[in-house]
Amino acid sequence: MSEPVRLIKKYPNRRLYDTKTSAYITLGDVKELVLKFECFKVVDAKSGEDLTRSILLQIILEEETGGVPLFSCDLLSGFIRFYGSTSQNMLGRYLENNMKTFVDFQQKLQEQSRTMYGSDTASVQADFWNQFLNFQQPAMQNMMTAYMDQSKKMFLSMQDQLQNQTRSMFPGFPPGDSGDK
């Protein structure tokens, strides 16, 4: 049977209370729970509102400002542009699926490295990841370029079809004539 979700209460004084250990904890402690793959939920102590996403975003913000950032300004700007667009849900699922695939791949690589090289695999893994990412970046760029080219062709084709349908519906108007001379 799986362990119940660990409940963490957030109080108005911004303190986090872990109900499992009956102790106050920090964002660093919550980060450790994430790193250990422990299931938890952060709720407002007064209203019961789920604050888990907010706390996770706080941890990400601290990580981004504290060291080498994971997200570039261009990437963050791109995320912001997707909010409110019709593609927002699709991007979220895409990122989630790719993150899961990446984590699964990394775990399999670690298992294979331990089998082949024993417990001292950090340098082997770092070298492999550098090689993999150097290969992956051009491949992803080529794939995205092909996708954008295909999307552009489909858009132009739809535009041509719309113009042809309009011409067939209104045969008296010459092409390109807007009628406001």
Rank of each mutant, 00 (worst) to 15 (best):
G92D: 03
Q163C: 07
E38I: 03
I55G: 05
F37D: 13
N134M: 09
Q107R: 10
D127Y: 15
G28V: 12
A122G: 13
V43Y: 08
L16G: 00
L56W: 12
Y83I: 03
N142T: 02
A126P: 01
S157T: 01
R14P: 01
T121H: 14
P12V: 12
T115M: 15
R114Q: 04
K31A: 10
Q110S: 03
Q112E: 15
V42R: 05
Y83K: 06
P69F: 00
Q88C: 06
N142H: 09
T65L: 02
D127C: 15
T52R: 01
Q131G: 12
S72G: 10
R93S: 03
I55N: 05
G92R: 00
D104G: 02
E3H: 15
F40I: 02
F170P: 00
N142R: 04
P69D: 03
K100H: 15
A23Q: 13
N130D: 08
K10G: 01
T145P: 00
L91Y: 05
M148N: 13
M169E: 01
M169R: 04
E96S: 07
S54Q: 07
D44I: 00
M90G: 04
D127N: 14
F40E: 09
K108F: 14
I80M: 08
Q131C: 08
K31I: 06
S54M: 06
Y147V: 08
T101K: 13
Y117Q: 01
T145D: 06
D44F: 14
M90I: 13
T166M: 11
I59N: 02
M116G: 00
P69C: 01
D74M: 04
L70M: 11
S151F: 13
T52H: 00
P174R: 15
P175G: 09
R81V: 05
G92P: 00
M169K: 01
L133R: 00
P174G: 12
S72A: 12
F105I: 10
F79R: 03
M140T: 12
C39E: 09
M140S: 10
G172D: 06
T26Y: 03
M158G: 10
G176N: 13
T65Y: 04
V5N: 04
K20R: 10
S123G: 02
V30H: 05
L33R: 07
S113A: 10
G48V: 02
A23W: 10
K36H: 09
Q136H: 06
Q112D: 15
D44Q: 07
L95G: 03
N164W: 04
F170N: 03
Q88M: 07
L16I: 05
I25A: 05
K9T: 08
Y11T: 07
L61V: 10
L133C: 06
T145S: 04
Q112V: 15
G176H: 11
D180Q: 06
N164F: 07
M1I: 14
A45P: 01
T121F: 13
L56P: 11
L156Q: 09
E49H: 06
R14M: 15
S119A: 15
D44S: 09
I60Q: 03
E64H: 04
P69R: 01
N130T: 13
R167V: 00
Q106G: 02
T26H: 07
E62W: 01
E38W: 00
Q150R: 10
F102I: 05
D50H: 01
R6Y: 08
A139S: 14
I8R: 10
